[in-house]
Design a protein around this nucleic acid. Structure first.
Length: 826
RNA sequence: GCCCCCGUGCCCCAACCGGCAGAGGGAGUCGCCUUAAAAGCGAUCAGUUCUGGGUUCGAGUCCCAGCGGGGGCACCA
């Protein structure tokens, strides 16, 4: 029957031509300039941000997902009357370009900027509402000039410094790595090679200075960030409360340890220091020195895999010295072992074998005394071999005897230590400083000159940027030191202080430095006088919603938070946290497996777009699951999405009323459905439940379909109202079909400039609702009642309805929840 | 070992404060339309809400224990 409404002789008009529509609208959008953010707008502002891509090849389906999700919120905010800053750029320094340049004997810029153009074209085709006037690339000298400037500012504040230390070294990429870039299995985050250690002098950012604040502010982010990311950062920063305790050592400086259990000090029967740290070498007696050396050798030979195993037997060596337990006055032996880490706490521990399993294992291995000082009611660890860590009554613990609670014991112990100056309560973090030097070419050069007379000298601001020298192909081959070192003309310079001959620092910065502040640069990307305009930071910031992948949970997101706090302390901005809300999208997998080249199961985005069109792919990605869940491409249906879009489009095609037709004269039931849907969609978008948004719009399309076919008919103004609402709501996800519908409905120039449908509250009120009548929680009857029925009336009606069921039973209690439910308890 | 998240029809997923288990999609089955198919339209099938306890008038939802899956940290003192 609906075919009668189609133009005669044109049955193909019942569908639209996806490819033609895409081509037409790309052109029109470009001409309309719809999404440029106005810095001077009077409207309230929103800053929408999505992680900028690295330009390696074309966009893949993961990008397609995150951009589709992100675009929903950016477009929604515009409809809702906000001036929206929605910028995009490229994180364009990095190893893949450099490796490609070596392979192809060219400059990394060639690969980088070619890929940027490819990705730009893909994004434009993808119909995203970015403000392209703010486009930036971190590898442009105009950008990295300010990366260098920030480095110097950090250094002025003592937050960037150089030190010699054992560092993570990737033998494949031939560069050092930050802790955050070494995965849990000891491999390189980028290339998967097994990371080794080297002793090198490198640049660091003092992230530990902000450990406490980075940790504390997570509480505020708990409700607006995705939970697992907050959890991951908490674990990474690793805050522990405890105490520093000083042990005197005959003939040496006192030995300070960090412990979370100062209350067990009475059970500390030996000490252990990290075998490979200076401390061990300083403490060891001459007699024991050969034994320590042999042990350290053995430890160094052990592979990382062995090191990571937590269940291997304890090993160690006695250092020949004793320390004095500050509370018992007892002499306890000092050992060295690899189970104590050099770079956590003080690199030394007090061992309480009765109440720490590692210490107990060590005590058993070397026959050291085990003294129980907390009686938890469990078997004595000295006999059972199982350390007890719970609460219990303190025994043989001097002033702690009588206490039975761990928290209280810890508090009292710290009090005692502080009273006689043997220790202090303290907080210790797992987080380490951020190693930012890299021995690679394609990054921002560190703007420092090394002068034989003046030492480390900052390159003066007016000489920034320190531009990369021209190197290509084989010159870039990794050789363990930075390729920049080979550019002698570039390296050899004059000292800014004394004017004498000096050399440039040849390392470049970790590319995570570039991406730690790009969202500030978007504020004024063309400003050649400053990194960004503080007034605009005040106006737009902080970012209202950031969307990206959770592989950055402890990398980029932590670094960006650190940068923001430092910029605040520099007085440039007044916000404490960069991202008010954070949403991470799941991965797109294929048939239960991660997509990978080796499995050959990658989904080719280009092919999907070609087969189903941009809209259908976007719709599929948004509809498949909640944003944070993974999407298994093998279990979703882009064909089904396209089918739905054709169905929605057909509504617009069939509407016969004129634009501007008064909806209030239209079909009441359809109007109610429309207004309820719009109302619900508003709430769903605002809570990021985009999959349900799509479901609700599908529902409205179904209802409208029925209204046309077997209800009020296509001429009813309510059908126009519903279809226009569908077009506007769909434009959040599928801009092409939405534009087509909007035009088909007689509007111009773009649906993105349409007014968001205004919900008429009166239409949300239902005329009647179904009340459920339960007897002991089981549904026995249903009643159609007015939504504002009183509890008494509802109870009376319900009891009357089920009177026969209750015949000879005593009603013990009646629960009434007007207007939805009555539960009778007999 | 410690911490976080998740288990709902065959599949992806809904269900506001605890109140009728089912919104939407996919797959299946069956009709209508068609010479036929596709498209379109319509109908239909499907469940001990992972298991066991508890709280409650009432539990998918809250609590406890377990099982299964995912993630973070991990000789971190």
């Amino acid at each position: 029957m609906s075919s009668e409404q189609h133009p005669a002789g044109a049955p193909e008009a019942a569908t639209y031509d996806v490819a033609a529509v895409e081509a037409a609208w790309q052109e029109r959008w470009a001409a309309l300039d719809l999404f440029t953010a106005d810095d001077a707008s009077e409207k309230p502002t929103k800053y929408a941000l999505t992680m900028f891509p690295y330009p390696s090849g074309d966009l893949h389906i993961g990008h397609a997902e995150v951009f589709a999700l992100h675009d929903v919120i950016a477009r929604y905010w515009r409809f809702r009357g906000f001036e929206v800053l929605n910028p995009m750029g490229w994180d364009s320094f990095g190893l893949p370009a450099e490796n490609a340049a070596i392979r192809r004997d060219e400059h990394p810029a060639t690969y980088t900027y070619a890929n940027i153009e490819t990705q730009l074209a893909a994004m434009q085709r993808y119909g995203l509402s970015f403000d392209w006037t703010r486009r930036l690339h971190t590898s442009d000298p105009e950008y990295y000039r300010w990366t260098q400037w920030l480095f110097l500012k950090f250094r002025e504040q003592g937050l960037a410094y150089r030190k010699n230390s054992p560092v993570n070294w990737c033998p494949q990429d031939q560069t050092v790595l930050a802790n955050e870039q070494v995965l849990a299995d000891g491999t390189c985050e980028r290339c998967g090679a097994e990371v080794t250690k080297r002793e090198l002098t490198q640049w660091y950012f003092r992230t530990t200075e902000y450990a406490q604040e980075l940790y504390d502010c997570l509480d505020d982010l708990q409700s607006t960030w995705i939970g697992k990311v907050v959890n991951a950062q908490r674990n990474w920063i690793g805050r522990s409360e405890g105490a520093h305790v000083r042990f005197d050592v005959e003939g040496h400086e006192p030995l300070t340890v960090f412990t979370t259990r100062p209350d067990t000090l009475w059970g500390a029967t030996f000490m252990v220091v990290a075998a490979d740290a200076k401390l061990a070498a300083e403490l060891v007696t001459d007699e024991q020195r050969p034994a320590l050396a042999a042990y350290v050798d053995e430890v160094r030979k052990a592979s990382d895999i062995d090191r990571l195993a937590t269940d291997r037997p304890k090993s160690g060596v006695f250092l020949g010295v004793h320390a004095t337990n500050p509370v018992t006055g007892e002499q306890v032996p000092v050992w060295a072992s690899d189970y104590v880490l050099a770079d956590y706490g003080t690199g030394a521990i007090m061992a309480v074998p009765a109440h720490d399993q590692r210490d107990l294992d060590f005590a058993k291995a070397f026959d050291l005394p085990v003294r129980r000082v907390v009686d938890t009611g469990e078997p004595d660890p000295a006999i059972s071999g199982v350390a007890t860590t719970g609460d219990g009554a303190y025994v043989d613990s001097g002033p702690l005897e009588g206490v039975a609670d761990k928290a209280e014991g810890v508090r009292r112990a710290i009090e005692l230590l502080e009273a006689d100056g043997r220790g202090t309560g303290t907080v210790n973090f797992r987080l380490r400083d951020w190693l930012l030097s890299r021995q690679r070419y394609w990054g921002a050069p560190i703007p420092i000159v090394h002068c034989p007379t003046d030492g480390e000298v900052a390159v003066p601001e007016d000489q920034l940027p320190v531009e990369l020298p021209e190197l290509r192909g084989a010159d870039l081959k990794p050789k363990g030191t930075s390729p920049l070192g080979a550019a002698r003309e570039w390296v050899e310079t004059t000292c800014p202080t004394c004017g004498g001959p000096a050399e440039r620092d040849t390392d470049t910065m970790d590319t995570f430095v570039d991406s730690s502040w790009y969202f500030f640069r978007y504020l004024s990307p063309h400003d050649s006088t400053q990194a960004f305009d503080p007034a605009l930071a005040k106006r737009w910031g902080p970012i209202d919603l950031y969307i990206g992948g959770d592989e950055h949970a402890v990398l980029h997101l932590l670094y960006a938070r650190f940068f923001t706090k430092v910029l605040r302390d520099l007085g440039v901005i007044d916000w404490d946290e960069p991202f008010s809300a954070y949403l991470s999208q799941g991965k797109v997998i294929n048939d239960g497996r991660k997509m990978s080249k080796s499995l050959g199961n990658g989904v080719d985005l280009g092919a999907q777009l070609k087969e189903f069109g941009v809209d259908a792919v976007r719709l599929t990605l948004v509809f498949a699951s909640p944003p944070e869940d993974n999407i298994d491409w093998a279990r979703v249906s882009p064909a089904g999405s396209l089918k739905f879009l054709q169905r929605a489009w057909r509504l617009a095609h069939e509407v016969t009323s004129e634009p501007g037709a008064d909806p209030t004269t239209g079909d009441a039931a359809l109007r109610a459905a429309t207004h309820r849907t719009v109302h619900e969609v508003e709430q769903l978008v605002e809570s990021y439940r985009f999959n349900v948004v799509v479901a609700r719009v599908m529902e409205l399309v179904n209802v409208t379909r029925k209204a046309i076919d077997s209800g009020c008919g296509p001429a009813d103004p309510a059908v126009r109202e519903a279809t226009e609402a569908v077009a506007v709501m769909l434009s959040l996800v599928t801009p092409y079909v939405a534009e087509e519908m909007w035009a088909e409905l007689g509007h111009s120039p773009s649906v993105s400039q349409a007014a968001w449908p205004v919900v008429d509250e009166a239409l949300l009120v239902q005329e009647s609702v179904t009340a459920v009548v339960q007897v002991k929680g089981k549904v026995r009857a249903r009643l159609e009642v007015s939504p504002d029925i009183s509890e008494a009336d509802l109870e009376a009606a319900a009891l009357a309805e089920i009177a026969d069921l209750l015949a000879d039973q005593t009603v013990r209690k009646v629960i009434v929840r007007a207007p939805k439910l009555v539960n009778v308890v007999v």
